[in-house]
Amino acid sequence: MDALKSAGRALIRSPSLAKQSWGGGGRHRKLPENWTDTRETLLEGMLFSLKYLGMTLVEQPKGEELSAAAIKRIVATAKASGKKLQKVTLKVSPRGIILTDNLTNQLIENVSIYRISYCTADKMHDKVFAYIAQSQHNQSLECHAFLCTKRKMAQAVTLTVAQAFKVAFEFWQVSKEEKEKRDKASQEGGDVLGARQDCTPPLKSLVATGNLLDLEETAKAPLSTVSANTTNMDEVPRPQALSGSSVVWELDDGLDEAFSRLAQSRTNPQVLDTGLTAQDMHYAQCLSPVDWDKPDSSGTEQDDLFSF
């Protein structure tokens, strides 16, 4: 819950932080000083300027060897085509990944977070970031790969997607708890209302004896509580940590079903599988986004697919 609360507080303090972009060759504004600060901008989305290598189908939802083989196929196909790589912007948030063309600003792909089953910074092609997700059109699994400016960037994108998945799962947990509370309150309110109706004398007997209905007592009954809980029953509950912020979080049926399955089948359902080692994760978390744009010590960066 700490990640969720800190993310909400950060967004309320400075929503404009989320509009910064990394990996864009110096076009961005001043960047936060450390990885923790940038992680807090996830709610509205972190932007990464990358190059799209392509996509291939895979048979399993996750796995280092599986993704490595898929990336190898994608890279080989991209090299064989001889075409310049498409420059894209990857927007990562707890909602998922939005992929747009840098030149036309046209939407290429919009992947809900619950469809993503794996992401990684490839070991062999260490400047490549990739994720595996279920197609929104059918049940097939797709591996999408992107060329980053350097290994640090690939690791940073991988960690960002993993963190977005974690925050999304926490949102789901909060929403589920809130819905259970509202359902319980609604049920209790309905029981109270039913009890009051059972003990209320029939209207005919009131008229016969000349008694008047006590409207004041009726007004004191917990009807307002019942209506408050039943009027918006169809509205999706939102985490309290975000009250007053500009973010509107809505959970669709697909996300609810997917996270429910994860909660039942996995020990740590909030953790998205990645190909990063503990050492890689520690190294990337210690980086400032400013470091992502620094040239690798191995030599001059080449803006070309064939540089790796």
Rank of each mutant, 00 (worst) to 15 (best):
D2H: 04
L4W: 04
K5E: 08
S6M: 15
S6K: 10
A7V: 12
A7G: 13
G8E: 08
R9W: 15
A10C: 14
A10M: 14
L11R: 13
I12G: 10
I12A: 13
S14D: 13
S16E: 10
S16V: 03
S16M: 06
K19L: 04
G25L: 10
H28Y: 15
R29T: 11
K30F: 06
K30I: 14
P32G: 11
E33Y: 03
E33P: 06
N34F: 01
W35M: 05
W35A: 07
T36I: 05
D37I: 03
T38D: 10
R39E: 12
R39C: 13
L42Q: 12
L42Y: 11
L43K: 15
L43I: 06
L43S: 13
M46P: 09
F48A: 12
F48I: 05
S49H: 07
K51Y: 14
K51G: 15
K51W: 06
L53T: 11
L53H: 12
L53A: 09
L53D: 06
T56M: 06
L57T: 00
V58Y: 15
E59S: 06
K62S: 06
E65Q: 09
E65F: 11
E65S: 14
L66Y: 08
S67C: 01
A68C: 01
I74T: 14
V75I: 04
T77H: 08
K79R: 02
L85C: 10
Q86V: 10
Q86M: 12
V88A: 08
T89M: 06
L90W: 02
L90C: 11
V92M: 06
P94S: 10
G96P: 08
L99I: 14
L99S: 10
Q106I: 03
E109F: 00
E109T: 00
E109W: 10
N110A: 00
V111M: 14
V111W: 15
S112P: 00
I113S: 00
Y114V: 12
Y118T: 14
T120E: 03
A121F: 05
F129N: 15
F129L: 10
A130Y: 11
A130H: 08
I132R: 13
A133K: 00
A133I: 11
S135V: 14
Q136T: 08
N138A: 15
S140E: 13
E142H: 12
E142F: 07
H144C: 11
A145R: 06
R151M: 02
K152T: 04
A154G: 03
A156W: 12
T158R: 01
V161W: 06
V161S: 02
V161L: 15
A162H: 05
A164K: 05
F165A: 01
V167G: 08
A168T: 06
F171S: 03
W172D: 01
S175A: 00
K176H: 03
K179D: 05
K181I: 12
R182Q: 06
R182N: 05
K184P: 15
K184M: 04
K184R: 13
Q187T: 06
E188L: 10
E188C: 07
G189H: 05
G190C: 03
G190M: 02
V192I: 09
V192H: 09
L193S: 05
G194F: 04
G194I: 05
A195F: 02
R196Y: 01
R196L: 08
Q197D: 01
Q197L: 04
P201D: 11
P201K: 02
L206I: 09
A208Q: 08
T209R: 09
T209E: 04
N211L: 05
N211R: 12
N211Q: 08
N211I: 11
D214S: 12
D214T: 09
E216M: 10
T218E: 07
K220S: 02
L223A: 00
T225L: 08
T225G: 09
T225A: 11
N229L: 13
T230Y: 07
T231Y: 00
N232Y: 09
M233S: 07
D234Q: 04
D234L: 10
E235A: 05
V236H: 01
V236Y: 00
P237T: 03
Q240Y: 10
A241P: 03
L242W: 01
L242F: 12
S246D: 02
S246A: 09
V248C: 06
W249K: 13
L251I: 00
D252S: 13
D252C: 12
D252W: 11
G254K: 01
G254V: 10
L255S: 06
D256T: 06
E257H: 10
A258Y: 00
A258M: 14
F259L: 02
F259I: 02
R261A: 02
R261D: 08
L262C: 04
A263M: 00
S265R: 12
R266P: 01
T267F: 02
Q270I: 08
V271P: 03
L272V: 07
T274L: 02
L276H: 04
T277L: 00
A278G: 02
Q279D: 07
D280H: 02
D280Y: 11
D280R: 15
M281W: 01
L287N: 00
P289A: 01
V290K: 01
D293E: 15
K294W: 04
K294C: 01
P295V: 06
D296N: 02
S297C: 08
S297V: 02
G299W: 10
E301S: 02
E301H: 06
D303I: 05
D304S: 09
F306S: 09
